[in-house]
Computed example of a mutant assay.
Amino acid sequence: MRAELSIEDETLVAAAGEIIKKRYEWERHHVGAALRTKTGEIFTAVHLEASLSRVTVCAEAMVIGKAISEGYKEFDTIVAVRHPDPDSEDREIRVVSPCGMCRELIADYAEDCRVIVPREENLAKTDILDLLPMRYSRQQQP
């Protein structure tokens, strides 16, 4: 895991924070994501909460879909942030690690993508495959 973030990475984290600040809605949207393509474009999106949790769509999936819909397929770095709940004592928007399904999705669309994650008191950047050891593969089936 690389501990230091570049200025471009800090800009990406800020973009994720800005989208969730703008679109935060209690019980609807509390996670935002930002994705930087290999050519430097930045896309942002929020997650879609549903009353049936299995229908909820993560912010990482939304931002990947948004970039693909605009014709981009080569991804460099992705980050997700969580807005605090209204009754939370901690009022900071914080970087969160992608869930298992998002890790699979990111790896499916960009095996060489890097992910910004929380690490101790700082942030770190790591390769998606480092977050997904012994990854599932259709080729492994008998």
Results as ranks from 00 to 15, higher is better:
K38A: 11
R91F: 02
M134A: 03
V57K: 13
V57S: 10
K22W: 11
I7P: 02
I78D: 01
R23L: 10
M1A: 10
H30S: 12
E60R: 06
H29A: 14
L129D: 03
T39Q: 05
I116Y: 00
R103W: 06
Q139T: 11
A45N: 09
V96D: 03
L5H: 07
A3I: 10
M1T: 10
S51W: 15
G71N: 08
L52E: 15
V55F: 10
P86C: 11
D9T: 06
Y72M: 11
E121F: 03
I93C: 03
A107T: 10
V95G: 06
S69E: 15
A3N: 11
Y24E: 04
A14H: 04
S53W: 12
L48T: 04
N122S: 13
V31F: 05
Y109M: 09
E111T: 02
V95E: 06
P133I: 04
K21F: 04
M134R: 03
A16M: 06
I20Y: 06
D130N: 07
G40F: 00
I19K: 07
G71T: 09
E70M: 08
S6T: 15
R94H: 13
I20Q: 05
L35R: 04
E25Y: 13
T56M: 01
V96Q: 03
S6R: 09
A3F: 09
R94Y: 11
E89L: 09
P98G: 08
T56K: 05
K66Y: 12
R119Y: 02
N122W: 05
G100E: 09
E111H: 00
A45F: 05
H29T: 14
Y24D: 03
T37D: 03
E120D: 14
R114K: 10
P84K: 03
V63I: 09
A110I: 07
E27P: 02
N122P: 00
R103C: 13
R2A: 06
E18Y: 01
E120S: 11
A61I: 09
E25A: 15
V13L: 13
I128H: 00
I106N: 03
V117C: 01
I42N: 02
H29R: 15
A107C: 09
E18L: 04
L48V: 05
H30C: 10
N122A: 08
L129P: 00
L123A: 04
R28H: 14
R28E: 12
W26D: 15
L105G: 11
R28S: 13
K73M: 14
H29C: 12
V31Q: 07
L48Y: 04
A110M: 06
G71K: 09
A59G: 04
H30F: 12
I64C: 00
E70H: 12
A34K: 10
R103A: 11
I7A: 15
C58G: 15
L35N: 05
R135G: 02
D9H: 07
Y136I: 11
Y136H: 13
A59V: 05
E18H: 04
E49S: 14
V31W: 02
P133L: 05
V115H: 01
I64E: 00
I64N: 01
S88M: 13
E4F: 06
V96R: 05
I116D: 01
D108Q: 12
T77A: 04
K73F: 15
Q140R: 11
